[in-house]
């Protein structure tokens, strides 16, 4: 199970290894596993209703038949299994998250592939942000938070006792719901990450990183003449793109975005969405959104979460209802709850 992820994309791999200060480099199995084209036993087909998915049932078919295109997967999920080997970034296995006594998220199984945009949708309180914050261990900052189960990142258990949350967050960037630039200059905001991680402290190297990051975030042309002005003077949409530039300045593998457009107007939202499509070339993106049109527009895969209310105790728990290709989630959902949600009858 632990070698389920076959992270094969060489360029991406080299890119990640080139990042300095990687004490866990030795423990990263991807280097050894990279060239292998082993069909991941637990790598399920991209689309499946989670309740139906049992890893065993898939591995039973491992011998496989003809190689099928990924798009055909959904209906034949149980009939076939030889799918192209995938670049799994995240593999979530039976994850439960608690805040104190509150069971925030129950039995989540999920896999996220490299260079795709995965959207988490669902009503408030369904745990989608909780799961996102587990992906770079931001939940560690909440003293009462506790997880059970497994999240593998490139095959490494993120919550292994040897794994440092600080190192994890250097590889997995995050963009927050509300733009939160530092009260510093535009330049210093982007330079913050490279400076603290030692990527570049000053001089031309740092200037290059800042310029490149701002360009990738489609902000450079707007701010190139006032890099030393305070970031607080930018508009909300510019601030959010600055936060994206700040996140990609440390050269992460993954970008986690927690409702990045919820505080923005439609024009700024469009810009961020276009940007996500460009960034997808270089990064794996996971986005939490309340906006279903946004999920439909930008994402390749969609996970629908919901709230399960236990009738006898009236306790609420977040569950993953359905996960699959975005167009299927929105056109032919398997679960009636998903259908009700995406058609606007619930939530």
């Amino acid at each position: 199970m632990s070698t389920a992820s076959t992270f094969q994309d060489q360029s991406k791999l080299e890119n990640s290894i080139a990042i300095p200060e990687m004490p866990d480099r030795e423990t990263e199995p991807t280097a050894a596993a990279a060239p292998a084209t082993v069909a991941a036993p637990a790598a399920t087909t991209p689309t499946h209703a989670v309740e139906l998915s049992t890893p065993q049932s898939h591995s039973a078919f491992e011998a496989g038949t003809a190689q099928l295109e990924a798009e055909t997967a959904s209906d034949e999920a149980l009939e076939q299994d030889e799918v192209p080997a995938k670049n799994l970034v995240y593999k979530v296995n039976d994850l439960n998250v608690y805040y104190g006594d509150y069971h925030a998220l129950r039995n989540v199984d999920l896999e996220i592939e490299a260079n795709e945009i995965t959207a988490f949708i669902g009503p408030s309180g369904c745990g989608k942000t909780t799961l996102l914050r587990c992906f770079n261990r931001m939940n560690d900052l909440i003293p009462t938070a506790r997880i059970e189960g497994m999240i593998e990142y490139l095959g490494v258990n993120l919550y292994d006792s040897q794994v440092s949350a600080v190192e994890v967050r250097r590889r997995i960037g995050m963009v927050f719901q509300k733009p939160n630039p530092f009260p510093k200059s535009i330049f210093d905001n982007v330079a913050y990450g490279p400076r603290i991680t030692g990527l570049a402290k000053r001089g031309q190297a740092l200037n290059d990183i800042v310029e490149r990051s701002l360009q990738k975030a489609a902000l450079f042309d707007e701010v190139k003449d006032r890099l030393n002005n305070s970031a607080m003077g930018l508009s909300g949409g510019q601030q959010q793109r600055l936060c994206i530039a700040r996140a990609i300045a440390v050269n992460p593998d993954v970008l986690l975005m927690d409702e990045p457009c919820s505080a923005l107007d439609p024009v700024a939202t469009t810009r961020i969405e276009d940007l996500m499509n460009e960034l997808k070339q270089d990064y794996t993106i996971v986005i939490v959104t309340h906006n279903m049109q946004q999920a439909a527009r930008v994402s390749d895969m969609t996970a629908f979460f919901s709230v399960d209310v236990a009738s006898e105790t009236d306790t609420r728990t977040g569950i993953l209802v359905e996960y699959g290709k975005t167009e299927e989630i929105f056109s032919t959902p398997k679960d009636t709850r998903t259908e009700h949600y995406v058609t606007g009858r619930f939530g």
Partner: peptide
Amino acid sequence: PSSLREASQGLGAR
């Protein structure tokens, strides 16, 4: 604001 601390820690700052 704690959002600034989160932003910093989200970038891998100690």
